[in-house]
Simulated assay, not measured.
Amino acid sequence: MNTTNVSIGKTTDSFEDLQILSQKEAEKIAETLQIAEGEKITFGFWTLDFPELICEAVFSKSEEGYIEFQLDFEQTTL
């Protein structure tokens, strides 16, 4: 499984704001991502100012050919 890092938001942002930013960024990534069926790619979403993990996003391709993702906020270091 490949892992890529994305930097968004700041540690001073509320966790709710960071969740919203993560959702929006994941939606943008899903629109441009090219992956094979059965492949999974993980993105770590980190804050810009001081690197704290916000969440992990796992992208995969559905049987219908759509890119799907799940955000895992249990991995946060905030």
Score class of each variant (00 low, 15 high):
residue 7 S to N: 11
residue 7 S to P: 00
residue 9 G to P: 04
residue 9 G to E: 04
residue 10 K to D: 03
residue 10 K to P: 00
residue 10 K to Y: 12
residue 10 K to R: 10
residue 11 T to M: 10
residue 11 T to Q: 11
residue 11 T to G: 01
residue 12 T to K: 11
residue 12 T to V: 13
residue 13 D to T: 05
residue 13 D to M: 13
residue 13 D to I: 05
residue 14 S to V: 01
residue 14 S to W: 09
residue 14 S to Y: 02
residue 15 F to N: 12
residue 17 D to T: 07
residue 18 L to Q: 01
residue 18 L to H: 08
residue 19 Q to V: 04
residue 22 S to Y: 00
residue 23 Q to Y: 12
residue 23 Q to S: 10
residue 23 Q to D: 13
residue 24 K to Y: 02
residue 25 E to Q: 13
residue 25 E to N: 04
residue 25 E to S: 11
residue 25 E to P: 05
residue 26 A to L: 06
residue 26 A to E: 04
residue 27 E to A: 14
residue 28 K to T: 06
residue 29 I to V: 12
residue 29 I to W: 05
residue 29 I to P: 06
residue 30 A to V: 01
residue 31 E to T: 10
residue 31 E to N: 13
residue 33 L to A: 02
residue 33 L to V: 12
residue 34 Q to H: 14
residue 36 A to G: 12
residue 36 A to L: 09
residue 37 E to A: 11
residue 37 E to H: 09
residue 37 E to I: 01
residue 38 G to F: 10
residue 39 E to F: 00
residue 39 E to V: 09
residue 39 E to G: 02
residue 39 E to K: 10
residue 40 K to A: 08
residue 41 I to T: 12
residue 41 I to K: 14
residue 41 I to H: 05
residue 41 I to G: 00
residue 42 T to N: 12
residue 42 T to G: 00
residue 42 T to C: 03
residue 42 T to D: 03
residue 42 T to Y: 00
residue 42 T to L: 03
residue 43 F to V: 01
residue 43 F to E: 11
residue 44 G to N: 13
residue 45 F to L: 09
residue 45 F to M: 08
residue 46 W to K: 12
residue 46 W to A: 02
residue 46 W to H: 10
residue 47 T to N: 13
residue 48 L to D: 14
residue 48 L to F: 13
residue 49 D to C: 10
residue 50 F to S: 15
residue 50 F to V: 14
residue 50 F to L: 14
residue 51 P to A: 09
residue 52 E to L: 15
residue 52 E to S: 10
residue 52 E to T: 02
residue 53 L to V: 09
residue 53 L to Q: 08
residue 54 I to C: 03
residue 55 C to G: 05
residue 56 E to Q: 08
residue 57 A to M: 03
residue 57 A to L: 07
